[in-house]
Amino acid sequence: MSRSMVVRYALIVAIIVVLLFPVYWMALTAVLPTRELLSPSPPLLPDLGSISFDSFQRVFELRPVGRWMANSATVTAGTVVCSVVFATMAGYSLSRLASKVGLIVGYSLFAVRLIPTTLLVIPLFMMFSEVELNNTLRSLVIANTVVIVPFAAWLMKSFFDSIPVELEEAAMVDGCSRLRSFLTIVLPLARPGIGAVAIFSGILAWGDFTFARTLIQGDAGTTVTVGLVSFVGEYTADWGALMAAGLLSIAPMVVLFILLEPLLISGLTSGAVK
């Protein structure tokens, strides 16, 4: 290994240690008795003897973490499907077909990012209560899709931009309709892009906090993020249980991310210009 490689590895490892330290510290807090950490010089490496999983047990005893996860998973899955479908349609339209008007309309989709979410929730709450969608996971799917699609649509647009238009033209010369060539030629080529959009929207939906805490009332529909924050009790600060709950709630998404990350990267970097 060359010297520059060694330096590069050392740098990468150092930066990973710093960047992932918060996750490590959460894990350590979850498995050590809090009292051991309530010290001006907390142990950086755990004494293996004092590791226990009591905090995790406490979390499961105290709150329906399993149901929270199931709710988050439902909302995430619903949002991913809706976002991918809408964003693919809109992205193709913006890339291939849209007039200037369409593009400007598309750009203005970003308006959603301008509204302070604290203010957005009141009208949203009213609208959902009008159509009796309040307190349903569907309302969360809709709200999340609304804020994700503008971004996802532009992601898909630039992905479609990288697929040579000549491919469809050839197909259309052969008698395919625009729609058919979209479905049979462009869509399969766009798979990496669709994967990237799916991961992107999945992460945002799983992490949503603002909507989940306003639009859902009641334990039945609580998602992990809101559930976890309800752990920050008014009456005590049980750091061990809090961190254990935090780890549990990030675990599914982190694992999924680790598995799918190559797909994301190839979706973002490959393009179709080969």
């Binding site: 805490r213 009332q217 009641g218 334990d219 039945a220 609580t222 924050v229 309800s230 920050v232 009790g233 008014e234």
Partner: peptide, 10 residues
């Protein structure tokens, strides 16, 4: 009665 917890902050 559907009693459910909400954090005091919220």
């Amino acid at each position: 009665v559907n009693m459910y917890p909400v954090s005091n902050e919220d």
